[in-house]
């Protein structure tokens, strides 16, 4: 870039072109949607299988799989931070949002332990909806927005269904709000970087 004097119009054009270049500058975050998407999906399917096929009393042990999600998040989170060459206000907002949602999941575990788990999945699904919808709006990615809306609908539906069906409904909600948008997000990021 030359250092010669330039006109006000060229200054405006330069400012606009540089600001444009910072759009979509954030690193690919699809790994977190895919990691948690598959962990929760697998836990749902496993719990359903343990409860309804094997009739195992401690079927909820399937949710120990979230340890894999926590360990994976810590690993990929640290890698993500080291590899990121730019931090945008949007990526920081998304991080804060998911941190808040993560803490809410943790708090809910104690609440359900006290009041009972009968309708716990409705609350989990509605949290997926909030996270995906807001993230989708922030990063302007429609599949996440639609995934969030779909999860809201399933959260309402789940209130009218029994516990066992809700396990499968949770698997369906994670599929539409995390897994499918996660793969589409990864594809979009790869297209941008080619």
């Amino acid at each position: 870039m030359e250092q010669e004097s330039f006109s006000p119009q060229q200054s405006i054009d330069l400012i606009q072109s540089m600001i444009q270049k910072t759009k979509n500058a954030a690193a690919d975050s699809s790994v977190f949607f895919l990691l948690w998407g598959w962990v929760v999906f697998a836990a749902c399917v496993l719990q359903y299988f343990l409860k309804n096929v094997l009739h195992y009393e401690h079927h909820y042990y399937a949710w120990l799989l979230i340890i894999v999600g926590i360990a994976g998040s810590a690993y990929f989170g640290s890698k993500h931070d080291k590899e990121a060459i730019v931090k945008t206000y949007i990526s920081e907002s998304v991080e804060h949002l998911w941190l808040g949602i993560g803490i809410t999941f943790f708090a809910l575990a104690f609440i359900f332990a006290k009041i009972g788990y009968e309708h716990c999945f409705s609350f989990y699904i509605i949290l997926y909806a909030i996270g995906c919808f807001v993230t989708g709006r922030l990063i302007k990615f429609k599949p996440l927005i639609w995934g969030g809306i779909g999860a809201w609908v399933l959260a309402v539906v789940s209130a009218y269904l029994d516990y066992d069906t809700n396990i499968l409904l949770t698997a369906a909600s994670i599929l539409i709000s995390y897994i499918i948008p996660g793969y589409l997000l990864r594809r979009q990021y790869k297209k941008q970087t080619i």
Binding site: M18, I19, T22, V86, K87, T88, Y89, E92
Partner: peptide, 9 residues
């Protein structure tokens, strides 16, 4: 112009 749009780079 780049830095004004991001937190840090």
């Amino acid at each position: 112009s780049l830095l004004i749009s991001v937190k840090e780079a």
